[in-house]
Computed example of a mutant assay.
Amino acid sequence: MRRVTILDDYQRVALASADWSAVGARFDIDVVAEHLDTDALASRLAQSEVVVAMRERAAFPAELFEQLPELRLLVTTGMKNAAIDLDAAAAHGVTVCGTGGEGNGVAELTIGMMIALTRHFAEEDAAVRAGGWQHTIGPGLAGLTLGVLGLGRLGGPVADLANALGMRVIAWDRSITPARAERHGARIVDRDALFRESDLLTLHLPLTESSRGLVGARELAMMKPTAYLINSSRGPIVDEAALLAALRDGRLAGAALDVYDAEPLPSEHPLRTAPNTLLLPHLGYVTTDQYARFYTDAAEDIVAWADGAPVRVV
């Protein structure tokens, strides 16, 4: 029977998040709960006609398409996926479709990370479980300056929530306009001022050649030693080595990270032991409502494609 493979279902919720009955009537459904490296991925997908990829957890470069002669449909959750070589997909006769999204998970998570980092939630939770009580102290967010690097689809809602908390919001990106800044209650500053003035700096840019390494040693050196960095965007936007050095030297009060250069984060990675950090496993989009939309649309994409009328083609 024809095969659909659902990749990287870490929480084992893909089949429970949507109605797959119409897909199951035509295909065997293979669910992969663990992350597979390139060789293991090629082996697992060798007989798959359809693959559902969760965001950018699995990369699909040209060399992988060459090893998957049976593949005809690749569904990515969301409508953009930088980990898929679309030219190679087209060259190998693979249709790529996407899905819609739901909710405001990234903005909510970003604010949550700010509070958890500055108020030391992880440390205090561990202390209480060990029999202790209060031993840290941190600032409230009201009155602090939040710098938003990228005031777009994701950064805008973060600014909205920050305003509701009584923060002062400043912003910079290459395409920012006064109208957009005003809509989100932000003051436009130049790039260097964003780093100098921010008490907390949050990143919301796509990963491109121009944004890779955008936050490096120079930029981190401009930040206040009492400032915090929040990254729920993409790991390589921040120079990881420079960030580690700033944290270990006490030149930054802390960092909350949901994204990394390599994901899943390697077990021996130095960030795991870096001081004053909150580390999350790329949870920005991981909500029940988002997964329901992703997998419902993915199932619809598969049925539509099987019927000869693909929808949401990327």
Rank of each mutant, 00 (worst) to 15 (best):
L205D: 04
E70I: 02
F195L: 07
Y260W: 01
V238T: 15
T110G: 09
T177F: 03
T277S: 13
E49N: 12
T277K: 06
G250W: 07
I29K: 01
A90G: 13
V52D: 01
G284D: 06
T202P: 08
T288P: 00
G185F: 04
P270E: 10
V106Y: 04
P225H: 01
A33L: 01
E123A: 15
M222P: 09
Q134V: 13
H120Y: 05
A306E: 13
A46I: 04
L151Q: 12
R2W: 00
R3T: 14
G143Y: 06
V158H: 03
L45P: 14
P236V: 07
V106A: 15
E197T: 09
D192G: 11
T202D: 03
L201I: 12
G213R: 07
A22I: 03
V52Y: 01
G235N: 03
T296R: 06
L271K: 13
S198I: 13
F65W: 08
L252G: 06
R312M: 08
G24Y: 00
S17P: 12
W305A: 13
T273L: 01
A262F: 02
F121I: 10
S211Q: 07
R12I: 03
E182I: 07
I111R: 11
G254L: 08
R55M: 05
A255Y: 09
A91P: 10
L194W: 03
A242M: 06
D28N: 14
Q47E: 15
L7T: 01
T76K: 12
V238E: 10
R153D: 11
D37K: 14
V52R: 01
K224P: 11
L154T: 14
D190R: 13
G152Y: 00
R57L: 06
A256I: 05
L200D: 09
A40Q: 13
G185V: 06
L207W: 04
V314S: 08
L71W: 09
D249W: 00
A16F: 00
P281N: 09
E197C: 05
K80C: 00
P275D: 00
S198W: 05
A42L: 04
V23A: 08
F27M: 02
D301E: 11
T202W: 02
K80R: 15
G235I: 09
T110Q: 09
E102F: 05
G308P: 11
T38C: 08
G78M: 03
L144M: 14
D261A: 14
D301I: 00
S21T: 15
N276A: 11
E66R: 13
A164E: 07
L141M: 07
M222Q: 15
L161S: 10
G98T: 11
H204W: 02
I170R: 12
E263Y: 11
R57C: 09
H120P: 12
E70N: 15
G152F: 04
G100S: 07
M79Y: 03
D258Y: 12
F121M: 14
D173V: 05
A306R: 03
A142N: 13
Y260D: 11
T118H: 00
E34R: 14
I111F: 02
S210P: 00
L214G: 05
A179V: 11
I230V: 15
P310V: 05
L229G: 14
V311N: 13
A22E: 14
H135V: 02
A116I: 05
A33W: 00
A292F: 00
L154C: 09
A256G: 15
I237A: 12
G103M: 02
